[in-house]
Structures are given as structure tokens and as C-alpha cells.
Measured scan of single mutants.
Amino acid sequence: MQIFVKTLTGKTITLEVEPSDTIENVKAKIQDKEGIPPDQQRLIFAGKQLEDGRTLSDYNIQKESTLHLVLR
């Protein structure tokens, strides 16, 4: 499924993921596309910060959901 990741600069990254993918996994995909190390990434969905060990389905993230990427 496709999800979108919006950065603070207003750029939107499109990722191909599975509901069973972990947040860690998603961060690795963002690193592949954008070169941002996962340890600098914070992903936010519905106002919650997403934890590395959880999966997209844990957070009920469905196709075409938009996550927000904050760098630390």
C-alpha cells in the first residue's frame, strides 16, 4: 500500500509499505529515499509519536495515510 510522509519543509514523500511493516522499517525506507538517518527521524500520526517496534497496523495506519516527519 502507499502512504505519504510530509516533511517540515512541506515536501511529501510517497512510500510503498505493508501494514505489517514496523515503524523502524518505514524509517529505513525514508533513509533510502531521503538520506536521513533513522535516529534523527520522528514520525507523527494523528498527533502521536510512533514507536520503532510497533507496526503500521498497530496504529491503524491505512493506505494513503499521511505521516508527519520531524527531525531531531
Rank of each mutant, 00 (worst) to 15 (best):
M1L: 08
M1G: 04
M1D: 05
M1I: 04
I3D: 00
V5Y: 03
V5N: 00
K6R: 12
K6C: 03
T7F: 07
L8N: 15
L8A: 14
L8T: 15
T9S: 10
G10V: 05
G10L: 10
G10Q: 15
G10H: 14
K11R: 07
K11D: 09
I13Q: 03
I13N: 02
I13F: 14
T14Y: 05
T14H: 09
T14G: 11
T14S: 08
L15V: 04
L15W: 01
L15E: 00
E16S: 07
E16F: 14
E16R: 13
V17L: 12
S20K: 06
S20R: 12
D21V: 07
D21N: 08
D21S: 12
D21T: 15
T22C: 02
I23K: 01
I23Q: 03
E24I: 11
E24Q: 13
N25V: 13
N25Y: 10
N25Q: 07
K27D: 00
K27T: 03
K29V: 05
I30W: 01
I30C: 02
Q31W: 09
K33I: 06
K33D: 06
G35R: 09
I36V: 11
P37L: 09
P37E: 15
P38T: 09
D39N: 14
D39R: 14
Q40L: 05
Q40E: 12
Q41V: 08
R42K: 10
R42Y: 15
L43R: 00
F45E: 02
A46Y: 08
G47A: 06
K48D: 11
K48V: 12
K48M: 13
Q49T: 10
L50T: 04
E51N: 05
E51C: 02
G53V: 13
R54L: 14
L56M: 07
L56V: 07
L56E: 00
S57P: 04
S57W: 13
S57T: 06
S57M: 05
S57E: 05
D58N: 09
Y59N: 03
Y59V: 03
Y59H: 06
Y59L: 05
N60P: 05
N60F: 13
I61K: 01
Q62Y: 14
K63W: 09
K63D: 09
E64V: 06
E64R: 08
S65L: 04
S65H: 09
S65I: 09
T66F: 07
L67D: 01
L67H: 01
H68I: 03
L69H: 01
L69A: 03
V70I: 07
L71K: 12
